[in-house]
Write a protein that binds this DNA or RNA. Structure first.
Length: 264
DNA sequence: TCGATCCTGTAG
DNA sequence: CTACAGGATCGA
């Protein structure tokens, strides 16, 4: 469920709460490999990093716990490792009694333990630039877009083009950029592509702020309550700009929402 | 590029 | 009941 902003919120929360903590034991119920339990016990949590939607828990001894929350996962700290919800899939018991919990009703989340080098190179290979870093330049983004025949929405969801966008913020960015999600990227004007680059940055920056403010530990995210969603999940509602009705179409097996009046 | 798959919960 | 879910991967 989380996209880059929610994953960033998760990481910040974790970072502040458990950097330096010692892991006594890890219990993997589902969603995680046996290696997680084998490798985590006895190590110290040195750092929490994010790459796109991936969460990296850097442990002592060059081991990384790699987590992807997929659709419905969540990762957070609880005051007592024994008091986790029924949807807890992996529980880390920390020295002092606190716990870090991977929670996921749908069991789609994934957690593995790898060497730092292994996961670093894998993500280097699979992920495009971080949209909120210097590496996300307008020139490279436009150049890459110009060479892609993917429909705009699918281009944005492809993590090798930009790391961290998901269904909601991709749709919102295209709305603000006034681009038809069905249109092949190569056929979008360079002016609109340059606009889209800046819009991706501002949409995600705003959403990170919302997510950090709204995220309250266990349970659901509430970022949509504070981030102003213009099209996502608004099928049939009037567009806030032109009053035409928002439509929903399937793209890549998922729902895309857009305004047929504004986005061309 | 579509469809099925992973799994389960929840809204309509 | 059925449809759908903020993700990603696989094979046809």
């Amino acid at each position: 469920m989380p996209e880059l902003p929610e994953v960033e919120a998760v990481c910040r929360k974790l970072r502040g709460a458990v950097t330096g903590a010692r892991i006594v034991e890890a219990r993997v119920l589902r969603c995680g490999t046996a290696r997680v339990a084998e490798e985590a016990a006895g190590r110290t949590l040195k750092a929490v990093e994010r790459r796109g939607k991936h969460i990296l828990l850097r442990l002592s001894g060059g081991v990384t716990i790699h987590t992807h929350l997929r659709m419905s996962g969540n990762l957070y700290v609880i005051p007592d490792h024994r008091l986790h919800s029924v949807y807890a899939r992996v529980i880390f018991e920390l020295r002092g009694g606190q716990g870090i919990v991977l929670e996921d009703k749908r069991v789609l989340a994934r957690m593995d333990a790898l060497s730092d080098d292994e996961i670093n190179s894998r993500l280097d290979r699979e992920l495009g630039p971080e949209p909120l870093s210097e590496s996300f330049t307008s020139d490279q983004f436009v150049a890459r877009a110009r060479g892609s025949r993917q429909p705009a929405k699918l281009f944005l969801l492809d993590q090798s083009n930009v790391a961290g966008l998901g269904n909601i913020y991709a749709a919102e960015a295209l709305f603000r950029a006034r681009i038809d999600p069905r249109k092949a990227m190569a056929r979008v004007s360079p002016a609109k592509l340059r606009g889209l680059h800046g819009i991706i940055v501002s949409v995600l920056s705003d959403a990170v702020e919302s997510a950090v403010a709204a995220y309250a530990g266990p349970g659901a995210f509430h970022s949509e309550e504070s981030f102003p969603v213009a099209v996502y999940d608004r099928e049939g509602e009037p567009c806030m700009t032109c009053r035409r009705r928002i439509v929903r179409i399937p793209q890549g097996g998922r729902s895309t929402y857009f305004c047929p009046g504004c986005q061309r």
